[in-house]
Simulated assay, not measured.
Amino acid sequence: MPFSIATWNINSVRLRMPLVERLLLENAPDVLCLQETKCPDDQFPSAAFRKLGYEHIAISGQKGYHGVATVARRPLEIVEKREFCQKGDCRHLSVRVNAGGKQLTVHNFYVPAGGDEPDPEINPKFRHKLDFVAEMNAIRADHDDNSASVLVGDLNIAPLEHDVWSHKQLLKVVSHTPVETENFEAMRKAGDWVDLMRLNVPDEQKIYTWWSYRAQDWETSDRGRRLDHVWSSSNLVPSFGGYEILRDARGWDRPSDHVPVIARFDLS
């Protein structure tokens, strides 16, 4: 069986725990990285995860906002809970897990959304987002013969033309503005990260992982964006077995506006 990592902005883990249970029962990823858990550590539903066989749990949460969690069916070692922009927000968690004879460092990120106005001079939320991405330059795709790195999460930027439903109409909309996309891609390349979701997918093919709650009929209008990402160090590329976007999850009962992405590797 391949080794798999899932990433999902769940938009409140306690509210949507039934959806998480469905994901785990139907897809059984080895590792699940959640974002926007909106849950302090002492209220995280650990018992529900352990009941499903996910006994290894790493969390970095706060009340009502943000929060990330990584759960697994195999042992995890917490590496770091890095603070960005001196905000005290819980937006990053890295762990180590063994797979295929390699020690994988898995970074789980929730990048700030940035508000509605794409001007850092008048919108402090957008300034925060740009500063956060700049600080992510310190996160590198470290690897050697016995180790590798993976970075996943809700990165809140759709970097490429066909990562959004309309490149032209969204150039001035937060998540796809040139200042975001250019800095984002520069940061990814500087860290030597490989964008696995675009590795074998033509640039002209649309990829979405998010559909707004504002749409009356999200499926028919299909105005999506690729805000959720899966990156790796270059030494994992030969073992990358593809990925799946669980689009149907956007239509589940009381869904998140993001859907899970599951990446698979030929590692045991």
Rank of each mutant, 00 (worst) to 15 (best):
residue 112 P to W: 11
residue 245 I to P: 03
residue 20 V to Y: 02
residue 129 K to T: 02
residue 79 V to N: 04
residue 101 G to C: 10
residue 4 S to A: 03
residue 186 A to D: 06
residue 241 G to N: 13
residue 198 R to G: 05
residue 64 G to Q: 06
residue 141 A to W: 08
residue 250 R to V: 11
residue 43 Q to N: 08
residue 232 S to W: 00
residue 178 P to W: 06
residue 139 I to Q: 06
residue 146 N to Q: 13
residue 137 N to Y: 03
residue 264 R to H: 03
residue 57 I to C: 10
residue 59 I to T: 15
residue 259 V to Y: 06
residue 197 M to E: 10
residue 165 W to G: 02
residue 252 W to R: 01
residue 188 R to T: 04
residue 248 D to T: 08
residue 268 S to L: 05
residue 132 F to W: 14
residue 164 V to Q: 08
residue 206 K to T: 14
residue 137 N to V: 03
residue 47 A to R: 11
residue 21 E to V: 15
residue 19 L to S: 13
residue 87 K to G: 14
residue 10 I to Y: 10
residue 158 A to L: 09
residue 20 V to M: 08
residue 225 R to A: 11
residue 168 K to W: 09
residue 241 G to L: 05
residue 139 I to S: 03
residue 74 R to L: 06
residue 71 V to E: 03
residue 214 R to E: 06
residue 116 D to H: 12
residue 239 S to Q: 15
residue 205 Q to D: 14
residue 253 D to T: 07
residue 122 I to N: 01
residue 192 D to N: 14
residue 261 V to R: 08
residue 33 C to P: 04
residue 91 R to L: 12
residue 208 Y to R: 10
residue 263 A to V: 04
residue 208 Y to S: 15
residue 3 F to R: 08
residue 182 E to W: 04
residue 48 A to F: 08
residue 15 L to K: 12
residue 232 S to R: 01
residue 137 N to E: 07
residue 152 V to C: 13
residue 39 C to H: 02
residue 14 R to F: 02
residue 229 H to K: 07
residue 176 H to L: 09
residue 36 E to K: 10
residue 170 L to V: 00
residue 154 D to R: 13
residue 116 D to K: 15
residue 166 S to F: 09
residue 162 H to G: 00
residue 200 N to C: 04
residue 242 G to P: 04
residue 209 T to H: 09
residue 70 T to F: 13
residue 160 L to E: 14
residue 84 F to T: 01
residue 160 L to S: 09
residue 107 H to I: 08
residue 100 G to E: 11
residue 91 R to S: 07
residue 143 H to E: 15
residue 229 H to T: 04
residue 265 F to P: 08
residue 72 A to P: 07
residue 167 H to G: 00
residue 24 L to I: 02
residue 132 F to G: 01
residue 191 G to R: 01
residue 112 P to L: 11
residue 50 R to Y: 03
residue 40 P to I: 15
residue 132 F to T: 02
residue 64 G to M: 12
residue 81 K to N: 03
residue 250 R to M: 12
residue 41 D to F: 14
residue 206 K to S: 12
residue 256 S to T: 04
residue 60 S to M: 06
residue 35 Q to R: 06
residue 7 T to K: 07
residue 39 C to V: 14
residue 33 C to R: 03
residue 145 D to H: 07
residue 38 K to V: 14
residue 226 R to C: 02
residue 111 V to W: 04
residue 134 A to N: 00
residue 5 I to C: 02
residue 177 T to P: 02
residue 94 S to E: 05
residue 47 A to V: 10
residue 247 R to M: 11
residue 18 P to I: 15
residue 105 T to D: 02
residue 258 H to S: 08
residue 91 R to N: 05
residue 234 S to K: 14
residue 155 L to T: 09
residue 54 Y to G: 10
residue 57 I to M: 10
residue 145 D to F: 04
residue 103 Q to M: 13
residue 260 P to E: 13
residue 182 E to Q: 13
residue 189 K to Y: 00
residue 207 I to H: 05
residue 88 G to M: 11
residue 183 N to T: 08
residue 190 A to P: 00
residue 104 L to G: 04
residue 169 Q to F: 05
residue 173 V to T: 15
residue 144 D to N: 15
